[in-house]
Each structure stands twice: as structure tokens, then as C-alpha cells.
Design a protein around this nucleic acid. Structure first.
Lengths: 117, 117
DNA sequence: TTCGTAATTAACCATATGGTTAAATTAAAC
DNA sequence: GTTTAATTTAACCATATGGTTAATTACGAA
């Protein structure tokens, strides 16, 4: 197992702002330039540029050049890391609940047994 | 569909710090008090208290009382919201990739057809 | 070469994060 | 009732976020 801590920090932090999730959702439909991403966002272009930098740092997007446009596109790997972390977390949590459940069932059996005696 | 934007902000933001993910991982094994959570964390107790507040705000944990201890326990719902968001995002992204793929295949077919002519 | 468009950088500001130490709280235990 | 242990609150600090407007860069078109 590798230590993805710092990557996960950047990824989850990047996902923690509605504008950035909106940008990712838009990019799910395909590449877009900054102006297009900015349009539904009720903030200035420089603000959008900053959000894009955060997404880029988390490697959630990558960028290219086309004349005076700098189109953005989605990168899927970091989202996979994020959901992997959550899935791992849930795995531990659920196996613990299973153990707790079987423990409670055992308890219950013993209670019934005890009651019969 | 409901607007969970603010909840997602708090959840993803909370997941964006290694100490908080470590706390959640520990709580996956079962309840723990603050001192126990703090032990592996190389920071002061007040710092841990602050992280716990962030996790509580995101409803990722809940707390109770037991004498002078305030045990924490994991709550699973917010992690579900988080992975649901990622899953939805991936769904859109992948269906787009599928459409792109079939488009490219069509292109390829037409190219072969064109070559035959 | 000048003009217009897309985007970024610079400079600034307010608030939030993430940490510290010292003091206060809370509740058991003696 | 004093002491001790667990935790929180208060006060402080440095840096990061998230936004603004104004200036600058990069590029195509006229």
C-alpha cells in the first residue's frame, strides 16, 4: 500500500467547494474553456481561474491550449482515489457492524438459554 | 433531487485533512474518547478538539458523554452522500466516454467503407 | 500594427484553517 | 472539600481560501 495522504488531501479539499464540483460536473459533458465554465458561476473570471488551479493541483483536471483558449478536461484517476478511500473506510466500518451484530445475536441466544434454565 | 450542496461542502472539506481521515479510520473500529483519538496524532489536544468539531459539523461523527469522557462515534450517512456524488459524477463521465467510443467506432466504420469505395 | 477577446497575474481584503499555550470546566475519586 | 484526569475554551498567531478590481499577457483578426 502506498501513502496517498497528500493526494487525498488535495482531492477532498478540492471537492469541498460547490463551484469546483459544478465545474467538474460540467466537464463531465466534455472539454470546456474558462469562459464557458465561468458562465453559470456568479463570480469573476479571476475567481474561476483560482478554482481551476485548485482542481489542477488535485489533478482532477488537466489543461491544454487552443489559440487564446485554455480548455479544461476531466481526469478520472483522482476521483477513483477518493471513492476508494471511502469504500475502504466503509469496508472496515461494515465488518465491524457485522461483528457487533453477531455478538448481539450471541448475547441474545445466551439470554434465551439463560431464561430456559 | 434535493440540494445537498452545503452538506457536501462540509463533508468533502472535512475529509480533506489527514488527521481527520485518521480519526474516522480509527472510529471505524468503534467508539473512542478524545485522548485515545489524539494519541497517534502528533498535535495538542485542543487541535484535536477542533478537528472533531469539523467532523461533527459535517455530521461524520456524533458524540456522547460518559463521566469526564466525550466519546465519538462514526456516522455513515455523510460518507454515503460523498460517494453518491462521486458515483453520479462518474456515471455522467462514463456515459460520455461510451458515446465518444461509439462515435469513434462509427467514424472507423465509415473510414473502412470509404476506403473500399 | 493595431484591435478585440480570453485568460491570467497582481494587489488587495475578509474570513477560515490549523496550530500553539494557558486557563477554565466537568466529573470522578480520595 | 480537595485533588486529579479529560476535555474544552480563550487568546493568539501564521498561512490558506475565496473573493474583488485593475493591469498584463497571449493570440487571432482586420
Amino acid at each position: 500500500m502506498v501513502n496517498y495522504e497528500a493526494e487525498l488531501d488535495a482531492i477532498f479539499m478540492a471537492l469541498g467547494h460547490p463551484a469546483r464540483r459544478a465545474i467538474l460536473a460540467r466537464l463531465g459533458q466534455g472539454e470546456a474553456a474558462v469562459g464557458e465554465l465561468a458562465q453559470p458561476l456568479d463570480m469573476s473570471l479571476p475567481a474561476v481561474t483560482k478554482h481551476l488551479k485548485v482542481l489542477e493541483r488535485a489533478k482532477l483536471i488537466s489543461r491544454s491550449k487552443n489559440a487564446q483558449w485554455r480548455p479544461c478536461r476531466l481526469e478520472q484517476a483522482p476521483l477513483n482515489s477518493a471513492s476508494d478511500w471511502i469504500a475502504d473506510q466503509r469496508k472496515v466500518w461494515e465488518s465491524r457492524l457485522d461483528r457487533l451484530d453477531s455478538y448481539l445475536q450471541t448475547l441474545h441466544q445466551n439470554t434465551k438459554r439463560g431464561a430456559k434454565k
